[in-house]
Simulated scan of single mutants.
Amino acid sequence: MDDALTEPEIVALTADHMQAAAEIRRVALWQRLPWLPDLHTPEEEEQYWRMHLLPNCSILGAAMGNRFVGVIAYGDNWIEQLYVLPDFQGMGIGSLLLGCAKEEMDEIRLWTFQHNAGARAFYQRHGFTAEEETDGADNEEREPDVLYHWRRLPERTPDLQPSDG
């Protein structure tokens, strides 16, 4: 089997990639949570990625062949976006993208919807704990959500043995 087909390449995304990033989010979100209201056009979502996320976040994409299949936007101890196309979920792509963020931040917070059981299980497997649940009044979808938190554990140092000195 060709490794290029099984191992995604992680690349830093630029303004030229924002349409693809926004599309990954739309497809992943509405295939998994079809009841959510579709509040923005694809063009509005691309503008959000280009004008808000790109200047304020590190944005990485997971490419397989010549196609982006996953995306993460993170910075300032927050994951703003993390999506993998449904046909590519369960292949370690989300874990790879999340690992990139964990390498750069000692603690991370993120929001996900309470009804997104797949995302909740994913974050819990990666050491995140639920910190707060809301009724959704503060998000534009008005969907109950949950705040997750992860903190890097301190490195263990070997116990020092007292000297006989």
Rank of each mutant, 00 (worst) to 15 (best):
M1Q: 09
D2R: 11
D3G: 00
A4N: 12
A4Y: 11
A4Q: 12
L5G: 12
L5S: 14
T6A: 10
E7S: 12
I10P: 08
V11M: 07
A12C: 05
L13Q: 06
A15Q: 09
H17F: 07
Q19Y: 03
Q19L: 11
A21R: 02
R25V: 04
R26Q: 13
L29N: 03
Q31F: 03
L33Q: 14
L33I: 13
L33F: 00
P34Q: 05
P34R: 00
L36R: 04
D38R: 13
L39T: 06
H40S: 09
P42A: 03
E43V: 09
E44Y: 01
E44C: 03
E46M: 09
Q47D: 13
W49V: 12
R50G: 05
R50E: 13
H52I: 11
L53R: 00
P55V: 08
P55D: 07
N56V: 01
S58Y: 01
I59E: 01
I59S: 01
G61Q: 05
A62R: 03
A63H: 07
A63R: 15
M64I: 15
M64K: 09
G65H: 03
V69P: 07
V71G: 04
V71A: 08
V71C: 11
I72D: 08
I72Y: 08
A73L: 01
A73H: 03
A73I: 02
G75A: 06
D76Q: 09
N77C: 11
I79T: 02
E80D: 15
Q81V: 13
Q81L: 04
L82F: 05
Y83F: 15
Y83T: 04
P86C: 08
D87G: 10
D87A: 15
Q89A: 09
G90N: 12
M91N: 11
M91H: 15
G92Y: 08
I93R: 02
L96M: 14
L96E: 10
C100L: 01
A101T: 03
A101N: 04
K102V: 07
E103F: 00
E103M: 10
E104T: 10
E107V: 00
I108N: 01
R109A: 11
R109Y: 14
R109S: 14
R109T: 13
L110A: 06
L110K: 00
W111F: 10
F113T: 05
F113M: 06
Q114D: 13
A117Q: 13
G118C: 00
G118T: 06
R120H: 06
F122P: 08
Q124A: 15
H126A: 09
H126W: 10
G127N: 10
F128T: 09
T129N: 08
A130S: 14
A130K: 06
E132V: 12
T134W: 01
D135N: 15
A137P: 00
N139F: 10
E140W: 07
E140V: 11
E140Y: 11
E143R: 00
E143F: 04
E143S: 04
P144R: 01
V146Q: 05
V146I: 15
Y148L: 15
R151G: 10
R152T: 08
P154I: 02
P154R: 02
P158S: 03
P162S: 07
D164H: 07
G165M: 07
G165K: 09
